[in-house]
Design a protein around this nucleic acid. Structure first.
Lengths: 333, 333
DNA sequence: CTGAAAGCGCTTACAG
DNA sequence: CTGAAAGCGCTTACAG
């Protein structure tokens, strides 16, 4: 795995606090005090000025690994994601998270963890102060990471009340889709999921939401089928749904929904009259499909704030009270 | 900006090499030798076994910051990207890069740098062994990072022969688009670029490629217009092109191309007869648009290999000789 | 074949 | 108000 590191690199001599102290005619401690604005230390204005000037002249900045070692904790927040496509929403989530963390002096860094590689290994080399996982972690992994003194959080897409698990209930997404379809008079629903089995943790809770709505309405359970995003099997799959009497389809995301729409065009079906379709994500292409796609938009800010609150790093921006998911109604359903 | 760190966290006592040494009845040095397989150290099989056993029992792993401090260099490769949407291609690039780096014991980590924030600051807290920038860095920034002893590389989308700059010539992409359009008999080209000004470094080189092809063919320069990805201004923009006699459009990427197609449908235009359209990226939706989109696919592996070769971390997988970009012909041009 | 010791660059009691 | 010193957890000459 990790091979031995090569010979020590020519380690371009680093500018150290020692040098700054020396040039300023003060001790290393004093340098540390002024640079960190250490509370409870009264530094004369003169000394402070001098140190700062030398710092600037030398272009000095503390070396983080040393700081981390001494302090016992870093300021890095590591987020691990699966390495398969996650779309616009996750990107937006990351950016917002990054912004908020930057504001409180933390640095967010992302690792796309390849299947087979453990988040624990990554956490070991990054040695972050906190680890946020975008996919389910094994309890042993959580245990190990915690024992490393790292705050740990897992974003769960289903229900959970386990500690350290931020729930981002995706059932709601499925419910919204299904309820809208039923409200438009559809009676038999289909669920269009992606083919990639690794995505199961993401779509399964949504399907569960659809399932419950059907059940509560006394309607048949949704028939779920997998579909390619490039739409080559769309017509064929749609035909299966039709044979099952399906007239409303909830898609895992907009890309899949677009593929369904493609299949419908091929079959000459009239959407939404013969079959309604609703997606998730509201990607740009959703508003320009034929017909424009009715979809569910996720409110990334709320999710981000839950993560941040779970990290307890900041008192958190006032809880966002916008709903996590909302229906964007267009013409496909 | 960075606020003072809070009181030392309850720093759950870390298992140290000292403890492993103690429990094994050997010195710390010996523990380090066996764990690192330090060459030139002859450790008795017995000692090795013992140390390893204790390591496993205690669940010990070296603490990276200490290791980095001592060794003088980390095993992290940091990649900074702009924080605006970059699409499937960049994601694929990251994943491939990550995979290769993992194989050689490095860990790739990504930071989406917000405008206004400097890559230098990020590099300072992560203290990586190498920094790869996906956007242009200021020469001063490069200088600073290098002085920190960090290998630095910048992915340039235009031409450049500056050291430390990996060129990923995007003119070629524009050329391929334009040449195809001209080959189908189009005489006046348009360039559809995104609205976000921050994307300029990415589309400008491509537009330049289109421009050159037109020039070389003795045709009028391409007329470039900005377009929203959600297509609300597509018809209107398309009308402007038409008034200028444009009958072939090169789009910055597939999303924009899809918007153009949307506008064409609204105007009742026949694509590609009245106007050809070619995108870039070959996203899944490209194959199911109406009509299916002709596009240029980028070969991510080649780009990744150039980056890796530039890092000189490994002897590199045999240079991929597949072309960087290739035309995927479908029905929109 | 193994260990005592120095050193990486910081922070933080502890003395003054 | 400031400094000498210990300590964070590792690696690596240097002795034996």
């Amino acid at each position: 795995m990790a091979e031995a590191r090569k010979a020590k690199p020519s380690a371009r001599k680093r500018v150290t606090a020692y040098e700054v102290a020396h040039e300023s005619g003060v001790s290393q401690a004093t340098v540390s005090y002024v640079l960190n604005n250490t509370p409870g230390q009264k530094i004369s204005e003169e000394t402070r000025k001098k140190v700062l000037a030398v710092r600037d002249r030398l272009g000095y900045f503390p070396y983080e690994p040393a700081r981390t070692l001494s302090y016992g904790n870093s300021s890095i927040v590591l987020i691990v994601m699966p390495d398969y496509p996650l779309g616009h929403v996750m990107t937006a989530l990351l950016d917002y998270l990054s912004e908020v963390l930057t504001d409180v002096g933390k640095t967010l860094v992302v690792h796309r963890t390849k299947g087979g590689q453990s988040a624990v290994d990554v956490a070991r080399v990054i040695a972050p102060m906190a680890l946020v996982s975008m996919y389910p972690l094994h309890p042993d992994e959580i245990e190990t990471v915690k024992r490393m003194g790292i705050l740990t959080e897992e974003l769960a897409f289903g229900e959970s009340d386990a500690p350290g698990v931020i729930t981002n209930p995706q059932e709601d997404v499925g419910r919204i889709q299904a309820e809208h379809l039923l409200a438009t008079g559809k009676k038999v629903l289909g669920y269009a999921r992606p083919i990639d089995e690794r995505l199961r943790p993401f779509w399964n809770p949504r399907l569960e939401g659809v399932r419950r709505v059907c059940q509560e309405a006394g309607l048949p359970a949704p028939v779920d089928l997998a579909l390619r995003e490039d739409g080559v099997d769309a017509a064929e799959t749609l035909a299966i749904w039709l044979r099952n009497g399906v007239n409303g389809i909830c898609a895992y995301n907009d890309e899949i929904a677009l593929a369904v729409l493609h299949g419908a065009r091929q079959l000459g079906m009239v959407v939404p009259r013969e079959c309604g379709v609703v997606g998730v994500d509201d990607i740009p292409a959703a508003s320009i499909s034929a017909p424009p796609l009715t979809t569910v938009r996720l409110n990334v800010h709320t999710i981000a704030q839950r993560i941040i609150a779970g990290l307890k790093l900041i008192d958190g921006p006032a809880e966002d009270d916008r709903p996590v998911s909302e229906l964007i109604m267009r013409q496909s359903a």
